[in-house]
């Protein structure tokens, strides 16, 4: 061949260096800076650069942070679970019963998600509010006489809005993995006497696992750090760690603590994701 390995390396890096350096400057450097900052302290506006674990100790011991971390994880895990649970049959339906119209179904699913995330989450507030769409609709139908108050401003509302908002991120990867399943395997299993349920648990579910695992991670990782949804529909009982990070950063003027909270949540999320992947690695190995 014309190109030796070294030549490839040189040409490849010549092209890749610009985007790589850009990401180094705008992603790696800021993350490193945030990491450093988390070991410093701030008194109003003066930054004390003495190395200390004070922020991490505060993040680990103060009940409010523990509460927010736990709540963020519970909300995010619940939302991930329900999103995947609802997305699976949808993806299955499109892949196995979509026929000629698979592309149309996928298109139909993505349309509502091209409104901005901000507006979609806000619409949940409009729907669930005291004088909102759902309450006024139910009163109009005379199904209730007083507006329901348990709908908005709690953790459930956040879970509901997230389950809606992240749906395509679950449907699409699961659909892709279902599409990859060799249909002759299903015929073989039917011929060998498997019932439809056996077939589902012994062939379809294990083979679609990479899509399910991917979907779970794609939703879990960003939603733990979601700021918009808890702020709009969470009320005080539904606030999450991102809201605290923002408060510490701006109003409380404690950037080092905000950095420590960010680093901590990043570590917790990475840890859970890695454990989750390791736990399911037997399903991922054959790909």
């Amino acid at each position: 061949m014309k190109f030796t390995f070294n030549n490839d390396t040189k040409k490849g890096w010549r092209l890749l260096s610009i985007p790589f350096i850009f990401s180094l400057l705008l992603l790696a450097a800021p993350l490193t800076m945030m990491f450093l900052l988390s070991f410093w302290t701030q008194d109003y506006l003066t930054l004390d650069k003495t190395f200390t674990f004070k922020n991490y100790i505060e993040a680990a011991t103060q009940p409010v942070y523990k509460l927010l971390f736990t709540r963020s994880l519970i909300i995010s895990l619940t939302a991930t679970f329900f999103t995947v649970l609802l997305a699976f049959p949808m993806a299955y339906f499109i892949s196995f019963h979509g026929g000629e119209r698979k592309a149309l179904w996928l298109f139909l699913i993505t349309i509502p998600f091209w409104t901005s995330y901000l507006i979609r989450m806000f619409l949940w507030k409009v729907i669930l509010g005291y004088n909102g769409v759902l309450n006024s609709f139910l009163i109009w139908l005379e199904m209730i006489t007083e507006p329901l108050t348990f709908l908005l401003y709690n953790a459930n509302a956040v879970v509901l809005a997230l389950t809606h908002g992240w749906a395509p991120f679950a449907i699409l990867p699961i659909f892709v993995s279902l599409e990859k399943i060799d249909r002759s395997l299903l015929e073989a299993s039917t011929d060998l006497g498997d019932s439809a349920i056996d077939q589902f648990f012994r062939i379809i579910l294990p083979l679609s696992a990479p899509g399910v695992i991917g979907a779970a991670l794609i939703i879990f990782i960003p939603t733990v750090g979601d700021y918009i949804t808890p702020k709009l529909v969470g009320g005080t009982d539904g606030l999450m760690i991102a809201n605290m990070i923002q408060v510490q950063f701006s109003k409380a003027n404690n950037a080092p603590l905000a950095a420590a909270l960010s680093v901590s949540s990043l570590m917790i999320v990475s840890f859970i994701s890695i454990v989750f992947v390791l736990f399911n690695r037997k399903y991922l190995r054959r790909y």
Binding site: P30, P222, G225, D226, F249, A258, A259, L266
Partner: peptide, 11 residues
């Protein structure tokens, strides 16, 4: 895949 708030805060 990184939470946007982390990208935003670090920048």
């Amino acid at each position: 895949i990184l939470p946007e708030i982390i990208v935003g805060v670090s920048l």
